[in-house]
């Protein structure tokens, strides 16, 4: 059962979100992107109303996570994702403006797969996403041009 990966983007800055989305599309990744502008909505979506994460059972997810959110820190979201049995296998890409080595270390310790500092080198970024997606499941590529 191969299932297309859904990209969950948790990013409060609309501009950043748009740029990320564009670059993902430009690099030829055509998967569905679900974006959230704050942590609460994202948590609701990921863990469901009961907070167990059962709603996402069997879904292939790739999570793009900004650490600086208006209502909670990305670190908390990352920890909860990696502690949830249904979600912990989903790759998480942390996107942030901080290049603080302590914070990077902490994210990797919590189980993040890639840590990307903004301003983003979008070529490398798209590459990382593609590889993560391939590693996990199927990446939808656009149908060949007619």
């Amino acid at each position: 059962m191969t299932q297309p990966v859904t990209i969950i983007m948790i990013e409060d800055d609309e501009g950043h979100a748009r740029l990320i989305e564009r670059n993902i599309r430009r690099s030829g990744v055509n998967n569905e992107i679900v974006s959230f502008q704050n942590g609460t909505d994202a948590m609701q979506h990921l863990f469901g109303a009961d907070g167990s994460g059962l709603v996402q059972k069997g879904n292939a997810l790739l999570i793009l996570l900004d650490l600086n959110l208006p209502d909670m820190t990305g670190i908390d979201i990352l920890r909860q994702i990696k502690e949830n049995k249904y979600l912990k296998a989903s790759p998480v890409v942390v996107l942030t403006t901080t290049d603080d080595s302590q914070e990077i270390k902490r994210c990797y310790e919590l189980g993040c797969n890639v840590y990307i500092t903004k301003p983003v080198n979008y070529e490398n970024f798209a590459n990382a996403i593609r590889q993560l997606g391939l590693f996990f499941s199927v990446i939808q590529v656009p149908p060949a041009a007619p």
Binding site: D13, G15, H16, K118, P119
Partner: peptide, 14 residues
């Protein structure tokens, strides 16, 4: 400096 970076990312990207 952290928060200044955020809009800068947009400026640069766009």
């Amino acid at each position: 400096s952290h928060d200044l970076r955020s809009p800068l990312v947009n400026i640069m990207g766009f």
